[in-house]
């Protein structure tokens, strides 16, 4: 009955620790260090690391960049809303913006090519959730995140918004095509 009574010894710091605890602490510490070093290891040897390249921006700055790409590389329009489908050249800078409640525009990429994807929000915070790949990133207004992506499987992908952004949140759905 001592967990809620003062320790039995005035100087409890010097009471020797049992072997069982010492062994467990040693094992646990090794595991903690392994987990810690996995992260820098993956930065060097892994292929999925989030870029830390980002810039402060504004909707007035970011919007025109997106529009310039759309004007130059639109190949067709889809749906009643005439959402542009943009097929920029492999290796180029590509843009997607989040706004209430759209991911804009639709991108058409080539499999195995690397692109510099710029993401930002025009209004509130949004969540870029590429499905069914399940890559998820926070999209914050005022900040432009730039990351290199290499789509490695052809197909049609959804971009779900997974940061709550108001009543129309569930209608905020974008698309990325990856061609062979």
């Amino acid at each position: 009955m001592t967990s809620y009574l003062p320790p039995a010894q005035r100087i409890w710091w010097k009471v020797p620790v049992g072997r069982q605890e010492i062994v467990w602490i040693a094992i646990a510490l090794v595991w903690c260090l392994i987990m810690f070093f996995m992260m820098p290891y993956w930065h060097v040897y892994g292929k999925q690391n989030l870029s830390t390249e980002a810039y402060k921006t504004t909707p007035a700055q970011f919007g025109p960049k997106v529009q310039a790409m759309i004007d130059q590389y639109t190949v067709r329009h889809e749906t009643e809303q005439q959402i542009p489908v943009v097929a920029p050249p492999a290796g180029s800078d590509i843009y997607m913006l989040g706004r209430l409640w759209q991911w804009w525009p639709i991108l058409e990429l080539e499999k195995g090519k690397t692109y510099r994807l710029h993401l930002s929000s025009m209004d509130w915070q949004h969540g870029f959730s590429l499905q069914p790949v399940n890559i998820n990133m926070q999209v914050v207004p005022g900040y432009e995140m730039v990351l290199n992506i290499t789509p490695d499987v052809a197909g049609e992908y959804g971009v779900v918004c997974n940061e709550y952004c108001g009543i129309g949140h569930h209608t905020m759905l974008g698309r990325i095509y990856v061609k062979e």
Binding site: Q81, G168, T171
Partner: peptide
């Protein structure tokens, strides 16, 4: 995603 322009 009822009501979305696109579908997934």
């Amino acid at each position: 995603f009822t009501g979305a322009a696109l579908s997934f």
